[in-house]
Amino acid sequence: MGELDAGLDDYGRVIELEPKQFEGWYNRGSAHIAARQYDDAISDLSEAIRLRPNVGYAYCNRGLSYLRKAERVKALADFEKGLSLWADMPLCYYGRGEIRLADGKYQEAIDDFTRGINSKPTAESLAQRATAYESIGEKKKALKDYRSALSLQPRLKTAAAGIARLTQNNQD
C-alpha cells in the first residue's frame, strides 16, 4: 500500500516482541530495501541470516542491498550463496546478471537473465538481457527483448531507447 514507515514500525514492534524470529528481521529488511535504506536492510537481513543461515532468499535480498550500494564483491558472494541454497531464485540471477553485464561478461549475463526470466520475467530483466544481446551483436534477440520489456512496462525508457537505437537505420 506504500505505507513503508508504518510497515517498518510494525516490523520493529514484531522484532521487539520476538527478537529471535527470522520473519520479523527478514520482513523489515525487505521493507528497508523498498524504502532504499540499504544499510538498515543489510543489518536486518544479516540478523535474519544469523538466525536461519540456510534461507537462500535472505542472501539474495542482502545481495541486492549490497549491489545498490555498489559493494559488488559482497553482493556477488550473497547471490552465489543464495543460489547454492536454492537454485530457483530470480532475484539472485538478476543481481548476478547485472554484475556480469557491468563486467562485460555478456554471455554469462544472458545466461543469468534467462534463468531468472524463465521463472519470473520482469521488464527490467528483459531490457538488461537485451543490452547484453546488443553488446554481442545479436540485434534481433535484443529487439525482441526490448519489445517484450515494453509490453510489460510501456514507459521503460531503456527499452524504448534500445529499440530506437537498433531501428534508426532500418525499419524492423
Rank of each mutant, 00 (worst) to 15 (best):
L85N: 07
K105H: 12
R62Y: 07
E108S: 13
K105T: 00
Y38N: 07
Q37N: 14
S43R: 15
N61R: 15
G95V: 02
G116S: 07
F113T: 01
S125F: 09
P121C: 07
Y66S: 04
A87P: 11
D40R: 14
G97L: 01
L91F: 12
D78Y: 03
E71T: 07
L76C: 01
M89K: 13
R50W: 07
I99K: 00
N118L: 12
A75P: 00
G56T: 00
Q107F: 10
A70E: 15
S84Y: 08
R52I: 10
D78V: 04
R36M: 10
Q37G: 08
Q37A: 12
G56D: 05
A34P: 06
N61M: 14
W86L: 09
A35V: 01
V55N: 09
E124P: 04
G97H: 05
K105Q: 14
T114K: 08
E71H: 13
L45M: 08
A34K: 15
A75F: 05
Y106T: 14
D39A: 12
R96I: 04
D78Q: 09
C92L: 08
A48L: 03
F79Q: 01
E124V: 13
R115V: 09
L83P: 03
L126V: 02
R115W: 12
G95I: 01
T122C: 06
F79V: 01
A77N: 14
R68N: 11
L76E: 06
P121N: 06
Q37H: 12
L51A: 10
E47P: 09
N54T: 15
D111P: 06
P121D: 05
I117L: 12
S119T: 14
V55D: 11
A77Y: 07
Y93H: 14
A58G: 06
S84F: 06
S43D: 10
G104E: 01
A75R: 01
T122W: 11
L91A: 11
G116V: 05
G63I: 03
D103Y: 06
N61I: 07
K105N: 13
L45R: 09
R100C: 02
S125N: 10
A41L: 04
L51R: 12
G97Y: 00
R68G: 08
Y66K: 08
D88H: 15
L91S: 06
K69C: 06
Y93T: 00
D44I: 03
C60Q: 09
L67K: 11
E108K: 12
L45K: 09
R62D: 05
P121I: 04
T122F: 11
E124N: 13
G82A: 10
S43T: 14
Y66D: 02
L67W: 10
V55C: 09
T114S: 12
L64T: 10
D39T: 10
R50D: 13
G116K: 08
I117A: 07
I117C: 02
L64V: 06
E80G: 04
L91K: 15
R62C: 08
R62A: 01
L101I: 03
G56L: 11
L91W: 08
F79L: 00
A123I: 04
L83E: 05
D111I: 09
L85Y: 04
L76K: 05
Y59E: 04
G95W: 06
A87F: 11
Y57N: 12
A35P: 00
P53M: 09
W86S: 13
D112Y: 06
Y106C: 10
A109R: 02
D78E: 00
D111Q: 14
S125Q: 10
A102H: 00
A102P: 02
S125R: 03
